[in-house]
Write a protein that binds this DNA or RNA. Structure first.
Length: 662
RNA sequence: GGGGGUGUAGCUCAGUUGGUUAGAGCGCUGGCCUGUCACGCCAGAGGCCGCGGGUUCGAGUCCCGUCACUCCCGCCA
């Protein structure tokens, strides 16, 4: 796989970077008991010096008459060399991978044909005079040298070895550097980092809580915070004005590739006396500059566009659009109304909520691709995916004798490079051809409608368009998946960019089909747009909230809101969602009380730290940016968590087990 | 809770239509080698083919079950 290639190049870059990151460690060590230099420090300027280096045996190359040891530490790699005449040779000879050695000797120049340009220390080597074995290593279950893919289970069980490996080591260092940068940026912007409790109260909303039994209060439990949501609002009400925290959050839900089971970190932010725009103005530069700092030169959106939730759904079929994908869907319902494509026309006639959305697919204009999309759609449980693809078609003979022949007129019209209006370049048609739609849909709706569609979507020869039809709420998600698939399969997505946007104007409430009632669509503490009046006068499902997300490359990075700081609006909002005032009092009593003693208007946001690091490390899996992750079953294979506890511990907690039969 | 993928040497993998003694690379052990940096060469050890059952003269291969890991759906205000 590409993993080993990647590993090799990572070795070069991160050795260099490691030295920068650990610059203070290179020469001013307080003691030279173990080392005078790190393994990444030596350069030709050090030639002639008597040095100690300590580290792990990365690799041994035994030539019989000459033996090389690559000694590795956090900072880099240094080649050490010894000859058999040396009395220390017998010690060098037995050293194996990952033993820990202290090597003393003189720094020497490598002759010009022996340089290793791939190594920052590649101009010199240490001529071994003394070896001290600090620690031996058993045969490795997981090699540190080279980085083939290893089974997750082995990697997690021997995480300490895995963490020595180049890519993961570099990712974790990058994570630390990113977090340090976040702290600096937030502090510089006038925010204070406050700690909030880890043992707190269970909250009825949201995810499943992790519970911690109380010894002092039999039968009662603490909960680990799903987020410091209420605390940060209380911090605002307490007058601290600007808060942030790299906050651990705990949710007892199943894992995904981008979601650790159990715990994750948020850059939790809250500000007083702010509007939504104020929050944007504070957070956007932090995110943009942070990404620019760590993006390795990839372009980052300078001004995050604001896209409404409704528009995002319509154009991208998702509230977390990947804007690197240039495809924007369009409503083309009118082209199908009363058309010969009965499947769509019939639905449109029956229900005025029915829409047809088009997914334009530039360069997708082949029957093979369209058929592939169609069978993909069927695999997704859809009846199929209607399509038209455009190709150059010769005019029929009769068109040449009849100037007014519709196809001839079409051909002439198409030769006006309408594409130039949009800056696109089409291959111009010759006088004897026209751009015609192919496929069952085109056949059924006819030349005129097909041409109108082509014009609206600005498509040309070699392009295609796919159609989804139905009630948007039901098909939007599928349409979004189709958009993503078209973009990726046709390679229309520019992967070397960070494309940000704000998604704004989320609905305050949504219809809960299971419970057959109106419920909060996001955060129950959000301020409804229009305040109390909107709640009293509008259909709840039409009320928008001051609720927003940051999305980057199709990843939901964070969500936030201007909070509801008025108790009467809160009571009303919870009432609409069907919560009795007593429930509100019981579950959010502290919050409600706080709002009654002078709460400032406030709001905030909480970007996901793990996902930021994933994006910046280019890793699709959160375990690649987490030092000690749990596996998918939420087990820590290294430490053995979760584990059974003693009967004594259970007794103290007043807990008796009632285990499932298996 | 549901669906998909994977499971063969310490590790990564190959293993044809069911057919003799299950192979390779890395690692490990031993030997040779003075300029390598994925060192090279020679030899060797190392296998409950995840586990259980079935079909068959014969199963790594087919069938059923089960377990583990992983990806996805549900879930994640």
């Amino acid at each position: 796989m590409a993993a080993s290639k990647k590993a090799k190049s990572a070795r070069k870059t991160s050795s260099g970077k490691g030295q920068k990151a650990g610059g203070s460690m290179t020469n001013n060590l307080t003691s030279d008991a173990y080392r005078t230099h790190t393994c990444g420090a030596l350069r030709s300027a050090d030639v002639g010096e008597q040095v100690h280096v300590s580290g792990w045996v990365h690799r041994v190359r035994d030539h019989g008459g000459l033996l090389f040891i690559d000694l590795r530490d956090h900072y880099g790699l240094t080649q050490c060399v010894i000859e058999p005449e040396n009395p220390e040779f017998s010690k060098a000879e037995v050293a194996r991978s990952e033993w820990v050695l202290k090597i003393s000797g003189k720094v020497v120049d490598r002759s010009s044909d022996n340089l290793n340009p791939d190594l920052p220390t590649g101009e010199v080597e240490v001529r071994i005079e003394n070896i001290e074995v600090l620690s031996e290593a058993s045969e490795l279950p997981l090699p540190v040298f080279n980085e083939p893919d290893y089974p997750e289970e082995t990697r997690l069980t021997y995480r300490f070895l895995d963490l020595r490996r180049e890519t993961l080591h570099a990712n974790i260092v990058k994570r630390a550097t990113i977090i340090a940068s976040i702290r600096r940026r937030m502090t510089d912007a006038g925010f204070f980092e406050f700690q909030t409790p880890i043992l707190t109260a269970s909250s009825p909303e949201g995810a499943r809580d992790f519970l911690v039994p109380s010894r002092m209060h039999p039968g009662k439990f603490y909960a680990l915070p799903q987020a410091p949501q209420q605390f940060k609002q209380l911090v605002m009400i307490a007058g601290f004005d600007r808060y942030f925290q790299i906050a651990p959050c705990f949710r007892d839900e199943d894992a995904r590739a981008d979601r650790s089971p159990g715990e994750f970190y948020q850059l939790d932010i809250e500000m007083s006396f702010v509007s939504q725009e104020d929050v944007f103005n504070a957070v956007e530069p932090v995110m943009r500059d942070l990404f620019e700092e760590f993006a390795d030169g990839k372009p980052v959106t300078q001004n995050f566009p604001q896209i409404t939730y409704a528009e995002s759904l319509q154009k991208y079929g998702s509230d977390k659009p990947d804007l690197r994908n240039p495809i924007e869907m369009e409503d083309v319902t009118e082209h199908f109304r009363g058309s010969g494509f009965k499947i769509f026309a019939g639905q449109i006639k029956k229900d005025d909520k029915v829409r047809v959305w088009a997914i334009p697919a530039k360069t997708g204009g082949s029957r093979a691709f369209c058929d592939r999309m169609n069978s993909w759609a069927q695999g997704e449980g859809q009846p199929g995916l209607g399509y038209i693809f455009f190709r150059e078609i010769s005019l029929p003979d009769e068109a040449f004798s009849d100037l007014k022949h519709p196809l001839k007129e079409l051909s002439i019209k198409q030769q006006i490079p309408s594409s130039q209006e949009s800056g696109e370049t089409f291959v111009p048609q010759s006088a004897s051809t026209y751009i015609g739609g192919a496929g069952p849909v085109a056949k059924n709706i006819g030349e005129d409608r097909t041409e109108a569609l082509r014009k609206q979507l600005n498509l040309g020869i070699g392009d295609a368009v796919f159609f989804v039809c139905g009630v948007p709420k039901k098909f939007a998600d599928f349409a979004g998946q189709a958009r993503t698939k078209v973009g990726e399969d046709l390679d229309l997505v520019d992967r070397d960019r960070f494309d940000f946007c704000w998604i704004v104007d989320y609905p305050m409430f949504e219809w809960d089909e299971d419970a057959k009632k109106v419920d909060f669509s996001h955060n129950p503490f959000s301020m409804p747009q229009g305040g109390l009046e909107a709640l009293e006068t509008k259909d709840p499902l039409d009320v928008l909230a001051y609720q927003y997300d940051i999305v980057c490359n199709g990843v939901e990075l964070s969500s936030g809101a201007i909070r509801n700081h008025k108790p009467e609006i809160m009571r009303k909002a919870f009432g609409i969602a069907g919560y009795d005032e007593s429930v509100l009092e019981e579950k959010f009593g502290g919050m409600l009380r706080a709002l009654q003693y002078g709460a400032p208007p406030h709001g905030g946001i909480a970007p996901g730290v793990d996902r930021i690091v994933m994006l910046l490390c280019g890793e699709p899996n959160i375990r690649e940016v987490t030092m000690f992750p749990m596996n998918q079953q939420a087990e820590d294979l290294l430490m053995g968590a979760p584990s059974e506890v003693s009967a004594q511990q259970l007794r103290e907690l007043h807990i008796r087990l009632n285990l499932p039969k298996s």
